[in-house]
């Protein structure tokens, strides 16, 4: 356990080198976010009845996008998948096969430290952005709900990481995996609720999407926070999310085991 804390420490130092990069990333991402908020504000201003039929008031809609930005900062996989793929392609993983260090836990520690560094750099600008929109930023119904939100947030981050890890394992077989990562990301972008809250989709489509792990990569924790899911369905949702995390973990392990057997240790 101790050695992984060490990895987190080193990862933190490494990631803080990119602090300027993280800061500009955060600032640039405010442009489309702000545009999205303007777009919805215009729609709500022109249509008094929208809120009635999609179940989102104007405040809730704006708050939804602010929460997307928050959850993203805490859980999104940044460059981990590219780095893992590069490690495999360039033969850097050979050393992990010899050391008493598990590559998956090692990468998870690095993911963790990357998130801490990112949060440290992004939280300031994000807090200011939210402060400017404070009349729209709603608080969760009660402390218990907020606690559940935090639990779901951790599960979301794990699900994101294990999925990306499994995807990156394709680098054992393929030279170029960025296209496949972008294809998966396109589906995730839509089905995890990045672009719009899934509630405004037709019920049938929403139902199908909830059979995939995507909503649990972003949409579900936000749903908890906004009090849109409560009671038994909340517990059921958390259980499903935990199951997806477990499945993704097992899949990542399986892909790693298969990949290592295939691995030819090119380069140094």
């Amino acid at each position: 356990m101790n050695k992984y804390f060490h990895v987190i420490g080193i990862g933190l130092q490494n990631n803080l080198q990119y602090r300027f990069n993280f800061l500009t990333r955060t600032l640039f991402s405010f442009i489309p976010l702000f545009a999205m908020l303007s777009l919805w504000r215009t729609i709500y201003a022109d249509n008094a009845g929208v809120g009635g039929h999609n179940g989102f008031t104007r405040e809730q809609m704006i708050c939804y996008y602010l929460l997307v930005a928050v959850v993203d900062v805490f859980t999104a996989v940044n460059e981990d998948d590219w780095q893992i793929a590069a490690d495999i392609r360039e033969g850097n993983i050979s050393q992990f096969l010899l050391k008493p260090l598990d590559y998956l836990w090692y990468r998870l520690s690095l993911f963790f430290s990357g998130r801490i560094a990112f949060i440290a750099m992004a939280s300031g600008p994000l807090a200011i952005f939210i402060y400017c929109h404070r009349q729209y930023f709603l608080l969760p119904p009660d402390a218990g709900t907020f606690g559940m939100f935090l639990v779901s947030l951790v599960l979301t981050a794990l699900l994101q990481f294990f999925t990306s890890f499994a995807m990156a394992m394709l680098a054992f077989w393929l030279l170029e995996i960025s296209t496949l990562i972008f294809i998966l990301y396109a589906f995730e972008y839509l089905a995890s609720g990045h672009l719009f809250p899934l509630d405004i989709l037709p019920a049938g489509v929403k139902h199908v999407i909830f059979l995939t792990p995507f909503p649990y990569q972003l949409y579900f924790p936000i749903q908890i926070y906004m009090g849109k899911v409560a009671g038994a369905s909340l517990w059921l949702g958390l259980a499903i999310q935990a199951l997806w995390v477990g499945a993704a973990y097992m899949f990542a392990r399986y892909m790693w085991a298969k990949g290592v057997r295939h691995y030819g240790a090119f380069g140094g």
């Binding site: 022109d46 999609n54 989709l201």
Partner: peptide, 19 residues
């Protein structure tokens, strides 16, 4: 796919408003 995603977003937006 990303182009399709944008078109999909347009149709979702206009399910909420006429213009």
């Amino acid at each position: 796919l990303w182009f399709g995603l944008q078109l999909c977003f347009v149709s979702v937006l206009y399910s909420q408003t006429k213009s």
